[in-house]
Design a protein around this nucleic acid. Structure first.
Lengths: 361, 361
DNA sequence: TTGTAAGCGTTATCAA
DNA sequence: TTGATAACGCTTACAA
């Protein structure tokens, strides 16, 4: 193993000079720098990470804590992980992968040992148990997702409320009046994953403003559950012509089911998805969708932690604006909607929202 | 920050004793151990990772090099990454995420700097440019995937040849005679990703043994390309009743298209997928599929590197046996196949394989 | 502009 | 069974 001392000797300079050439923390004369750089490449020198961390009090590692759950759309997690890694690299940092099965202890371990200089938490819950650890250790951190209490924390997230609102606007603009919102599984809401609720309430509010009648249905995302949900929607609100789909798993099934039931998309029914671009593109018809910039999430998170590692103390909360891309799955509301009829069966209140429904004809 | 020396003082023992209590590398009297352990928890001591790495010549970190490409099924990559991380943790190791955009230099960097004690390479290509670096540095490594030359290397991979063979067997058992193989995009074969070819040749060989007539078609995986591919298959071999689908992206489109063209699965056509379980389950009908154990891939890779880090020098190549799970998408070949007719258009030889076709009637 | 030298917090060797 | 103590390879005042 080649050490800095050996490089120094080879170049005929002192060890500190080599160190400074490497770190750029003091000015070096051109000839000296060249001699050192030659020695480095001739000997194939690579600074020892452990020694650097020990002496410099900085591991140049960021820990990324990823969820184990698979009810999040996995490719997006991966996209974030990759953008985190690449952004970190561009700042001279490496990324340590920590899985959430260690729970709060995982965070404690990597932060307290100095293994990582900072921590990025993915899939943050409203009342996340890892946050107290962060506060206790005074760790440098950035959260992807918004907890209930962001005091003192740096966070990035999609602006889910706007995402929901964009869906309502788009369908309202197209003349739809009865719109169903196909949500996530009940567990997701129960876990109080903020994004699910923020999207829904952004949608709800804008729907109210635009005078839409809406129906919110949680959905597991499997074919069967989607079939059940769609069936109940069409039973309860036969005049429904717009669908906003939050649960990506329900997209494929929903499209099949609409087709099977003889409804053409977008002539008879419009579908707006809350999902990543590739997913929207690979369906048939291609889906009008609201998408947030996943890569920016990772990039920003890294920049937030690095700022904190660099000494910044002001927490920042950034919400990234999503974009609605119209594709083939949405169009003007049909002029003659399916004949509205009275709801056939009793409804459970938890299940149905007649938010601001005008009385059915 | 609490140091080992402080713990020693607090416990009234020497620093080395504390170190040995932690590492278990020499026997400690029960009372001493208890005093030390109490001091550790009272002070909230966490050993400094950098110091440990420097003094111990072991970072307790494994680097996992992941591909950037998205033509691999991403959830599987994630599953592997997670099983790698968890297995590593269970051995006291952490995992550093390295993206392949750094190329061979990324491997060099983490290995030569002592940042990582070992390296796991994902998505290994037949002639992978990272392998020479491994050899040059004498790094401890495990590969997920089989390169052309495995000399001196430890590797794990699925037994893709068997996977292909299982598909052929299954369809042959069900009485199918004309089977189409919907493959990956041409680039994948050109990149010589071993798995694509090994699956295909395993399939081919078994198909020959079983007397199947096969047609191999590369496919991009998009709806359009799948439509094109299916169209050509049905043109060229109207009697085709079995489909083996290697490109997961083509699955959804293929099922839709078969339905659209009036073919019921599995009554008129059987589909066997080479894909992960969740994907097979979430289609409708649920797909008969051949699946390899992704988690084992990660687990084994970790165990292989750790063996090498521990001093083992014998390379091991492990192939994990895939399993075919029959579901709803495959059934007996229809008694009256669509009437065979002469191929309507000239074929490009690269495109079609009449491997061992009997002359058409 | 460059050099000297004192740490950084462990591990592990050598003694006791 | 335990204790001193010399590395480990780098960073960074402090000097020159």
């Amino acid at each position: 193993m080649v050490t800095l001392a050996e490089v120094a000797q080879h170049a005929g300079v002192s060890p500190s000079t080599v160190s400074y050439v490497l770190s750029g923390k003091r000015s070096i004369s051109e000839p000296t720098r060249r001699r050192v750089e030659r020695a480095i490449s001739e000997l194939g020198y690579h600074p020892n990470a452990g020694a650097r961390a020990l002496a410099g009090k900085r591991s140049h590692i960021i820990a990324l804590v990823v969820p184990l759950r698979t009810d999040v759309y996995v490719p997006i997690m991966m996209e974030i992980a990759i953008s985190v890694t690449m952004t970190a690299r561009s700042h001279g940092y490496d990324v340590l992968l920590v899985t959430n099965d260690e729970g709060p202890d995982g965070v404690r371990r990597v932060a307290a040992s100095g293994l990582a200089d900072g921590v990025i938490l993915m899939d943050v819950e409203l009342d996340d148990e890892r946050i107290p650890v962060l506060r206790e250790l005074g760790s440098h951190a950035a959260l992807i997702g918004l907890p209930a209490d962001t005091t003192g924390l740096s966070c990035v997230d999609h602006d889910f409320a706007t995402a929901g609102a964009l869906c309502a606007d788009h369908l309202a603009d197209l003349g739809h009046r009865d719109v169903a919102f196909v949500g996530y599984a009940p567990q997701v809401y129960q876990r109080h994953a903020g994004y699910a609720e923020r999207t829904l309430s952004g949608f709800r509010e804008r729907a109210r403003e635009r005078g839409l009648r809406i129906l919110h249905r949680p959905c597991e995302g499997s074919f069967e559950s989607t079939a059940g949900v769609l069936g109940r929607i069409l039973d309860d609100r036969p005049a429904t012509t717009g669908f906003v789909v939050q649960n990506e798993g329900a997209l494929g099934p929903l499209l099949s089911l609409l087709r099977t039931s003889g409804r053409i998309v977008p002539e008879d029914a419009s579908v707006v998805a809350l999902c990543p671009e590739p997913l929207a593109e690979q369906n048939s018809p291609r889906l009008t969708a609201v998408t947030g910039p996943a890569q920016d999430l990772g990039r920003q998170a890294v920049e937030l932690v690095l700022k904190r590692i660099g000494g910044a103390t002001t927490p920042e909360v950034t919400l990234l604006t999503p974009v609605l891309t119209p594709r083939e799955s949405s169009g003007p509301a049909p002029l003659t909607a399916a004949p509205a009829r009275r709801l056939p069966a009793p409804q459970t209140p938890a299940d149905v929202e007649n938010s601001h429904a005008q009385p059915l004809p």
